[in-house]
Simulated assay, not measured.
Amino acid sequence: MDATTILAAIGSLVVLLGAAARLPAAAAEVVRACSVLVQAIAEFRATVRRAFATHPDEENGKAVSTPQSSAEREGVGTVVPAAGEDAGDSKVSAKPGHG
């Protein structure tokens, strides 16, 4: 082995060790990014399930879909008959039963 080969081997070793030292940090970043992705996918799946879930309606036994927006879940903008009125004389209420 001549001096040039030895110097090339030492240089290569320095480059490889420098790259190897950065691998654990890069691998940790990949794992962190994947965990955020997995959490986002789980949240998306839960949202889709809530959006398309059905439950039996207690009044008539039909399956109805759950409310699609937070306003619908809160009852904002729903038509609720006021006390002493029938359904034909209803008005819009901010919350169900607060007409």
Results as ranks from 00 to 15, higher is better:
G84M: 04
Q68N: 10
V38N: 09
R22V: 02
L37H: 02
A20Q: 13
S90I: 00
H98D: 13
E58R: 10
V48Y: 13
R50D: 13
K62S: 08
V80H: 14
V64D: 12
E43D: 11
A83C: 02
A42V: 05
S90C: 02
E58T: 03
V30L: 14
S65C: 05
T4K: 15
A8Y: 05
G99M: 04
A26W: 04
F52V: 01
E85P: 00
R32Q: 14
S65A: 11
A27S: 12
R45F: 05
E59F: 06
E29Y: 03
G61H: 06
C34F: 02
A19M: 12
P96S: 06
G61K: 05
V76M: 06
V48W: 13
F44R: 12
P81R: 03
G97W: 04
A46Y: 06
L16S: 11
G11M: 04
V76C: 02
I41H: 04
D2M: 02
F52C: 06
P96L: 11
D89N: 10
L17Y: 08
T66G: 12
A20P: 00
R73K: 04
V79L: 14
V80M: 08
A28T: 01
D2R: 02
T78L: 13
I6D: 15
P81N: 06
A71R: 06
E59M: 03
E58Q: 13
P67M: 08
R22F: 11
E43Q: 08
L17C: 07
P81A: 09
A19P: 00
L16E: 12
Q68Y: 08
L16A: 14
A46N: 09
S35N: 13
G99A: 15
A21I: 02
A42Y: 07
G77S: 06
L37D: 08
D57L: 07
A53D: 09
K62D: 13
D89R: 06
I6T: 10
T66E: 15
G88H: 07
T5D: 15
K91F: 01
D2G: 15
A26F: 03
P56Q: 09
G84I: 00
L23A: 15
A19D: 11
A51D: 06
G77I: 01
A27N: 13
P67S: 10
L7F: 12
A71K: 05
I6W: 14
S65H: 10
A63E: 12
P67N: 09
P67Q: 09
T54K: 04
K62A: 12
